[in-house]
Nucleic acid binder design. Structure first.
Lengths: 144, 144
DNA sequence: CTCTTATGTACTTTTTATTGTTACATAATA
DNA sequence: TATTATGTAACAATAAAAAGTACATAAGAG
């Protein structure tokens, strides 16, 4: 299965937007991510709705951050993307009403749910500013 | 994305095999899971390799449990299926060597890894016997 | 023995989710 | 008003997973 990397890409873009003074066009972002401008617009739409970014039309237009990195958590970005499916595995539909199947579903649902909660709680605890700080450290290390 | 439900299906089958005195044919299992016998054989192949089940050819043949439910954990079944991908989301390949991307990958890898470890640890802590016990409780409740 | 019923597996087809593309509308600026 | 952006619906292409086909092998029934 090819995994959904919109969260990774979106964070990548947001941090670059933070660095950049001018608005970034979908075109430019698409080139950076090696994808199509329309795909970029689609992905950013959810972030615009929540006012994490704004888009401007016409000359000199493009995408611009409207919040501080400290005030955006991973969870917020994840949710702005429509809370994409976390797990690649999921239950079979117990159409048959089989009790064995029901017991299996119950047991696994519990475990999966714990993992989901941990993941989302960690997402909520990390702001984009922290990732940006990691980036600054990397930059120092490699001396660029 | 349509999620992989082999783990669910396989547990379902193993518990039924435990109930059944005679070996279950791939045909019968396929009917139960609403799928093809060949799909069943493919899925069970990993379990056979690890001697959780055995298969017999010819008349009266089929699949049979060769271990006690207490002695099989969810983790073992998961691994017998080839340790399928857990998460539906994964990192973008940082072909460009961008440090921002590297920082994002690093931060998210850490979080995802914690969730993975929790999930697998829980899998290791649950035996099929426990799920079977849940099933017995459900059976009591519904009085079948 | 040989017929039937099973599994084993390589190969092929189908399905489906995602991604990418095109087309055209809208808006802002030079 | 020409150009450069975004916005979005509709459509096409792609690729990964699952399902199915065909045929080989093996075991037991008669």
């Amino acid at each position: 299965m090819k995994s959904d990397n919109r969260l990774w890409r979106t964070l990548h873009v947001l941090l670059h937007m933070h660095q950049s003074q001018e608005p970034m066009t979908s075109q430019a972002i698409g080139q950076m991510l090696n994808t199509n401008p329309v795909v970029v617009r689609r992905t950013m739409a959810g972030l615009r709705e929540r006012h994490y970014v704004q888009s401007e039309k016409g000359h000199g237009g493009g995408w611009r951050l409207t919040r501080k990195l400290e005030d955006i958590t991973l969870l917020e970005v994840y949710e702005a993307l429509g809370s994409p499916t976390l797990f690649a595995m999921g239950e079979a539909d117990d159409s048959q009403g089989c009790l064995v199947e029901a017991a299996v579903n119950q047991a696994l649902a519990e475990v999966m749910d714990q993992a989901r909660q941990l993941l989302l709680a960690r997402f909520a605890s990390i702001s984009l500013a922290e990732i940006d700080a990691d980036f600054e450290v990397l930059k120092e290390l490699r001396g660029c």
